[in-house]
Design a protein around this nucleic acid. Structure first.
Lengths: 140, 140
DNA sequence: TACGTCACTTGCATTTTGCAAGTTTCATTG
DNA sequence: CAATGAAACTTGCAAAATGCAAGTGACGTA
């Protein structure tokens, strides 16, 4: 599996902001990181996010993020081989950046809701419709 | 001056991260914001950043950021009319996001230096070469 | 043997970037 | 007053990135 070495040392400037953007400054990378932070790990799980990332882009981003050392992949089963992706320490550290995005987005873009809020409101909806039968174990 | 109304309400999802990325999730927007935070304000000043943003992209980003309400432009002189750009409160609030980028970049991308660090080292260089004459008032 | 699934890959069409050169509006210089 | 220069963009076009749909390979299951 040829994982190209290209991209080493091609930052636009020494500015940490510009350089970080060179790694994850596109429309999709940080969303992949977001989902990995939320515990998603397989290709299918990542592909099923509400934003509907095109599968070829997802494959490309996983490759780039791995090349950049932000994520690691490992086979979670043989026969057939299936890979699981997880953040490296470096990648996990992006949580602070994501948190800043959440704060700004919630404060300045009306209608945005965090993952947790959406989950909570779905719960209420479901509870209302179902008349709150079944304590609903193992919610996902 | 036709400032298109397109783009209103076309966010990929209700996620604040995804939505924020829809506004500023590209390679250049946040660098423009960075420079405005640093007090740059004219087209020329913005264009002369070390990353060398193409001028058509700069014009486009200024338009988009203004449409999104992140910056405001005003003529700073007539004859000839010249515009100055500044961040709105909404735009200034992105400082927290930028700070998170700086922290992450400095910690994980070797060789990156903040604006202030670069200035300091230039100062030392200059001081060394000049034998430290002139106390250098008004540092920027 | 015939599906179905997961994890990708491939082939384009469309959109976005990027580079270089051109334009407009003045102010200044000779 | 003609020539030059600068600031702030615009335009044209090539190159790269993105997006969509369909295809592929390796299984497991019916």
């Amino acid at each position: 599996m040829k994982r190209s070495k290209k991209g080493v040392g091609k930052f636009r400037s020494v500015c940490p902001i510009a350089s970080t953007l060179d790694l994850v400054g596109d429309k999709w990378s940080l969303l992949v990181v977001r989902d990995l932070l939320r515990g998603r790990s397989t290709y299918g799980e990542l592909a099923s996010a509400p934003e509907k990332i095109p599968t070829n882009i997802l494959a490309d981003r996983l490759r780039r993020l791995e090349d950049a050392g932000l994520i690691e992949s490992s086979a979670y089963q043989e026969r057939p081989v299936r890979y699981a992706y997880k953040l490296s320490a470096k990648g996990e550290a992006l949580e602070d950046v994501l948190r800043a995005f959440v704060t700004w987005g919630k404060a300045h873009i009306p209608g945005t809701k965090t993952y947790t809020e959406v989950a909570r409101s779905n719960e209420r909806q479901t509870a209302a419709r179902a008349g709150s039968r079944k304590p609903s174990r193992n919610p996902r």
